[in-house]
Design a protein around this nucleic acid. Structure first.
Lengths: 229, 229
DNA sequence: CGCGAGCTTGACGTTGTTCAACTAGAGTGG
DNA sequence: CCACTCTAGTTGAACAACGTCAAGCTCGCG
């Protein structure tokens, strides 16, 4: 975790925000925020902690991790930059429901909750936009949970591979930065099950595995597996 | 489904809203909304339909139902009056993600989305409140799904019975308006499993069943089952 | 070179689903 | 008033899915 120069880019966030708030309000956000970098595996926000900041993920990939007292972890969702995270925490008020953990090296900008809340209060269109961003992520988690709730393991793993290809790596061939264990935590099944399913698919020529790279060869078959569950 | 007189009560909603919006804005909402009653089992909003209204549930109990093409239904959550529903749909923009179905006879007020959106735009504090309400419900669903994801059936059914007692019926002894099948859809397991678990608990004197009434005798043991999963 | 973390495979037992059969109550029409 | 049918609830047995365990493997790093 490392502080960098004060002059920041915010490229995507600035572009989006400029449609809704004044340059002056944006400066207010910019001045009170800090840019941090996190190495793979480092926690950005801790479950149970107070939500003091809204996180804007400028670069990298993070997982939303739910840690359970008794049993194992659960990954709620995985997202890649650029994205506004932890907006949910803005509206929940409660302690953070989950941890944010870097899956790949990340650059994030921590925006002070108090400050952004003030800007939201003065700019209802900006507030609506922020809500929608948060809602979009809610929706994705809910859809993932629905899949989780009534599909068999194979359908769920198919969902996750498709999700990673489309929404995270933006390619049908990608270098997987997650371990099998993490995929299992995302799919809500055991590591062994993930491995079995993936190598079964390799035999059936649906995917190709080579080290940490995954290539989807037959996306239609994968979608079919996802569909029938 | 039945239209009643235009003069409405809105008691709870009015009280809450009055902290955030003017009498004039509230009148605007009131004038463009209609009060409807739904009988047990009737759909209030349909999954896939366009979200034209925000639903304020004045009386009754509704389930959030997710219908799947291939397999069975899934109940996302169950809530009792008074509560603002479908606020999520306001922010999602997409088609309704789920159906709202009356579990008991309901009185609801349908507030026109366009109108409430206008009021939200002009009153950012009101918008924040609405979003917090939506977030609260979202959080409950997520917590339920987390439970669903890594607990055994027994733990999940315990969660649901506790949730119904605390959040829906507000009593440890209640007349269950859900069928065993619906509990199963909520818990993400088979009807038989719900039945087996409940009668097992009856033998162990944790609950008493008599027809459609359920009484929780040993809430600590139930919480323990919920905890250990 | 050795150690540990992540990965892989197979065997085994547990959990939960499915199926089939039966009961009870509610509603319907002759 | 009595078959009838329909739905909800219940039970048990057979079977499939999944997790756990145990063992061996590979690769990167000190």
């Amino acid at each position: 975790m490392l502080l960098s120069e004060t002059k920041q880019e915010y490229s995507w966030f600035r572009r989006i925000s400029s449609q809704f708030i004044s340059e002056k309000d944006f400066d207010k956000l910019e001045k009170t925020s800090v840019k941090l970098t996190f190495k793979k595996g480092e926690p950005i926000l801790k479950q149970g902690g107070m939500p003091s900041h809204v996180v804007y993920l400028e670069k990298g990939i993070v997982k939303f991790n739910y840690e359970n007292e008794t049993s194992k972890n659960l990954i709620l969702t995985i997202v890649s930059a650029p994205k506004i995270l932890g907006g949910a925490n803005l509206f929940y008020k409660d302690n953070n429901l989950f941890s944010l953990i870097a899956v790949e090296d990340c650059e994030v900008i921590m925006i002070d909750s108090k400050v952004i809340e003030g800007v939201l209060m003065d700019n209802s269109k900006f507030a609506m936009m922020m809500f929608q961003v948060a809602s979009e992520m809610f929706k994705k988690s809910v859809m993932n949970f629905i899949s989780l709730a009534h599909k068999q393991k194979e359908g769920r793993i198919a969902d996750i591979i498709l999700y990673l290809a489309e929404e995270v790596y933006h390619s049908n061939s990608f270098l997987l930065s997650l371990t099998r264990k993490e995929i299992a935590e995302f799919a809500g099944c055991s590591t062994e099950n993930v491995i079995m399913t993936l190598s079964k698919w390799q035999n059936e020529k649906i995917v190709s595995l080579e080290g940490k790279t995954i290539e989807i060869n037959d996306i239609d078959k994968l979608k079919y597996i996802s569909k029938i569950g």
